[in-house]
Nucleic acid binder design. Structure first.
Lengths: 155, 155
DNA sequence: TTCAAGTGGTTCGAATCTGAACGACTGTGT
DNA sequence: ACACAGTCGTTCAGATTCGAACCACTTGAA
């Protein structure tokens, strides 16, 4: 049994900062969206992805990958958004099994109304707190972290 | 209605990196702990906090604050850990209302067994991917983010 | 002392998430 | 053509989360 390499002080500080910032920011944004737009963060992210996609539409699996969520979780959320009239399901022309989620006009409108407040909250909680160097480090470092972690996903 | 300050490219990269790294790392560690130690990440964190506290014990509220979770969520998890014999509830001497969660010997043992694998996973997913500068930026920047966000919490 | 306001933890119901199982279909190799 | 492994999205049961309501107790002020 090898003695594990424990985290030194610098590493521990980074890890604790990451852990708590992660939770606190998520919690903050969740609340902001719930209060100001009656949306969960997941729902908001679904809509953002769709709005940026060609034809405002994406396959379910593609969407699940981008959101880093399970397929079943996405099914649930898309159903909720569909009930609210913000997203519509279409069947995929090239694959009968496939389902395409499409942002409706109403969804686009809701997103446009929600976006400014959400961006402001993101700035307040995270972006505007960091220096330019810290921003670059975050982008580069966490970008690399994400790249490596993608490609070991499942269901 | 003011035109909101949208995120520029650097900011957007940082935000997207943060978002996806957050989800991917959480998912990875959740799975590692489930597979290797049959613990959820929340449960593991409860035990880590307790193990580092004087007397291996903390008040419920204090614990909830440290974990950035709701009081009811903590009640649930502590109950689970109690059933598993890893944590015990004691009543608080100085406040009859209070409840103190204490790590049992068995809990300490389980934690000791789980820790090496978990630290290794944390290294692999995050710490060892970053350069020394990025680590410092993370620690400093996200530390500040956390500090600011604490102090607007609720139950 | 006494009262009002606040705190600590639990309980409850509702929402959400996950993995496994499923049914339907695709695509490849033979 | 044909099997057969893989993919797509859904459904299901179970686990977890949250906030609101609640009760018991504490605290501070009158």
């Amino acid at each position: 049994m090898e003695e594990p390499r424990w985290l030194d002080d610098r590493e521990k500080a980074a890890w604790i900062g990451f852990l708590s910032a992660t939770n606190l920011v998520a919690r903050k944004l969740e609340q902001q969206l719930k209060d100001d737009a009656a949306l969960s963060h997941t729902q908001y992210e679904v809509m953002v992805q769709l709005s940026a996609a060609p034809g405002r539409a994406l396959r379910m699996t593609e969407l699940a990958d981008r959101l880093v969520t399970s397929k079943s979780g996405l099914t649930y959320q898309v159903t909720q958004l569909e009930r609210a009239g913000l997203v519509a399901r279409r069947s995929c022309p090239s694959d009968v099994r496939g389902v395409i989620a499409e942002l409706t006009d109403r969804g686009m409108e809701v997103l446009r109304e929600a976006a400014p407040g959400h961006v402001a909250a993101v700035r307040e909680a995270l972006i505007d707190v960091l220096t330019a160097e810290q921003l670059d480090s975050l982008a580069t470092g966490l970008g690399e972290v994400s790249r490596r972690l993608r490609g070991s996903a499942s269901s």
